[in-house]
């Protein structure tokens, strides 16, 4: 029982990270029907920038409290990622807005490769270690271990998701985003500045990605120029699982994918008597994805197309 509890906690933490990154994919897809493959790399840049700031701060004033240092890193990483996403959209996607859909998709992959290589040149090939400055509190609940960091990750994810939901559903910008998602032309006729709304979508997604990037590197204790690739792929799968273009779907898909992965990897070996092992972890997650796509091509929550943003 304590093992099951622990696996659910593992999955929940992993899933809330996936969900945050998945939001960025789904928001952009909702508006542009573009799969922004560079989004995983924006997450990576967020982690790298934050780590650089953290390293500088620790170098100058080692006595600062750890939480404050990490928070300062995050405060620099968020605007950095927002500026980056703004530039990417303007340079790489906007000129192709009326091009066939395949063109911006390929550009997205190109941007992703460029960002990876730039990061490799700037931060090197080394794994950058996240300094152990965060409080290391641990609790035992029903025999399972929970750390302060895990609680913060889940809490921060849920807060961010709630904030985004409020933004989309309750603000003028949110209404403009939903309108643009339904029809760019009609929204423009109604006085919505479509270009600005699309920019805002990218920038908001990037801010969330920066938060996710810092959380990932703090959680695993490392950052690497390559870290955004697999994270982006998993988050993309989560977005599709939940129904791409649907914000609630991205959250649900992320959390589900995390839990499926944890339970799958944890139990597949025992359930099949060692015939299948935990190396099927990723297969398991993607198998579920395929099942969903076969029986519900729009994803779990994908039918509310009109409401997407």
């Amino acid at each position: 029982m304590d093992i099951l509890t622990q696996q659910l906690i593992n999955g929940l933490v992993l899933g809330s990270i996936y969900a945050l990154v998945a939001l960025g994919y789904t928001m952009v897809y909702g508006i542009l029907e573009l799969i922004n493959f560079a989004h995983g790399e924006v997450t990576m840049i967020g982690a790298m920038v934050a780590l650089t700031v953290i390293g500088l701060l620790l170098g100058m004033a080692p006595e600062l409290p750890g939480l404050m240092v990490v928070f300062s890193g995050l405060l620099v990483a968020i605007p950095a990622c927002m500026a980056l996403a703004f530039a990417i959209e303007k340079v790489a996607y906007r000129p192709l807005r009326r091009a066939p859909r395949l063109a911006p998709l390929i550009t997205a992959i190109g941007v992703s490769i460029i960002l990876q290589n730039v990061a490799m040149l700037v931060w090197g090939r080394q794994y950058v270690a996240f300094p152990a400055i965060l409080p290391q509190g641990q609790y035992e609940v029903f025999g399972a271990h929970i750390t302060d960091l895990q609680l913060v990750i889940v809490a921060l994810s849920l807060t961010t998701m709630a904030g985004l939901w409020l933004l989309v559903e309750r603000t003028r910008l949110g209404r403009a985003m939903r309108a643009t998602a339904q029809s760019k032309e009609v929204a423009a006729l109604m006085g919505v500045n479509v270009d600005r709304v699309i920019s805002a979508t990218f920038v908001i997604g990037a801010a969330i990605a920066a938060i996710a990037g810092v959380m990932v590197s703090a959680y695993y204790g490392l950052a690497h120029y390559h870290m955004g690739f697999l994270l982006g792929l998993k988050a993309f799968a989560a977005a599709v699982l939940g129904g791409i273009g649907n914000i609630a779907g991205a959250m649900l898909g992320g959390l589900l994918l995390g839990i499926i992965e944890a339970l799958g990897a944890g139990y597949i070996g025992d359930l099949t008597g060692g015939f299948l092992g935990s190396h099927y972890q990723d297969v398991f997650a993607f198998f579920v994805l395929i099942l969903v796509l076969v029986f519900r091509p729009s994803g779990l929550l994908g039918e509310r197309v009109a409401n997407r943003a």
């Binding site: 093992i3 622990q6 696996q7 593992n10 999955g11 933490v13 992993l14 695993y220 992965e261 944890a262 339970l263 799958g264 990897a265 944890g266 139990y267 070996g269 025992d270 935990s278 972890q281």
Partner: peptide, 8 residues
């Protein structure tokens, strides 16, 4: 992420 296999 090795949480799942380590928990097992």
């Amino acid at each position: 992420d090795f949480a799942a296999i380590l928990t097992n």
